[in-house]
Amino acid sequence: MKISYKATTQILIALIVISIICILINNLTVNLIKTGLGFSFGWLFRPASFALAEHPLPYSPSDSYAWALFIGWLNSLKVIFYSLLLATLIGTCVGLFRVGKNVLLRLVSAGYIAIIRQTPLLLQLMFWYFVAILGIKGTIASPIGSVLSISNQGINLLGIKLSAEFTSLLLGLSVFTSAYIAEVVRGGINSVDKGQWESFRSLGLKDSTGLYKIIIPQALPAILPGLTSQYLNLAKNSTLAIAVGYSDIYAINDTIINQTGRPIEGFIILLLSFLFLNLIISNGMEYLNTAIIRSSNPY
């Protein structure tokens, strides 16, 4: 009796899933026939005929759509990579301040986390772009002169020029994600038994040494899963680049869809490229996770 009930439920669920997929495929085919364009990727090799402000590799409007998309992918990769580093750096520091002994730092970091987590990312990106960067009058130069200069054209750091769009996206993504990473770090550190702190302190070790040698190695297994999901979020959030006019893969894809009228193919490419990117991130983190668990708990 019970078994047949279970089987019926399973079959019912399978039927629902299959019919939804069928409806979607049907929709797609009908629409493709209606537009009369069919399903093809041949357009990828036609010239893009639009300019790109930022391209890590040589690019001109006479290059193909495929090349433009690849440039966009590289631009995405670039901003994601540097944001990951910066967000991890800021997030770790803020997370450590949050559990530290200094009362002022603890309050400031709590405030930072609260403000950043409770405002939308889009709003923060707008702030960085329109207020913080484009709002600059003249050039702000650090006392070291030629090392760092900031203007509404972006940042010039040791001769490396970062555009205003890249800078605001980098800061926006990093600051936003750092607040979440700080909470992940704090949670990980709090998960380590209080006795471990007392134990290293009673041996005369400094808090900084104990944190590095005793607490963080034990907190890492608890930190990494949370960190991975923040990294994946950051990668996906990078598509908000379009709001500040940075030519990431989403923005370029958007332009291409407008020009070619091929949203289905365009979105398939977009989906696949993000799937690929996030698989790299999550596999890398998984590898790190296994390595750390193995080294911190050898038996």
């Binding site: 007392e198 134990s199 290293f200 009673s202 190695p217 034990q218 708990n297």
Partner: peptide
């Protein structure tokens, strides 16, 4: 602390 040793109820060895 460098001159005073302490032994705890829960041992508190460093597991890693």
């Amino acid at each position: 602390r460098k001159r005073v040793g302490m032994v705890f109820q829960q041992f508190n060895l460093f597991p890693h």
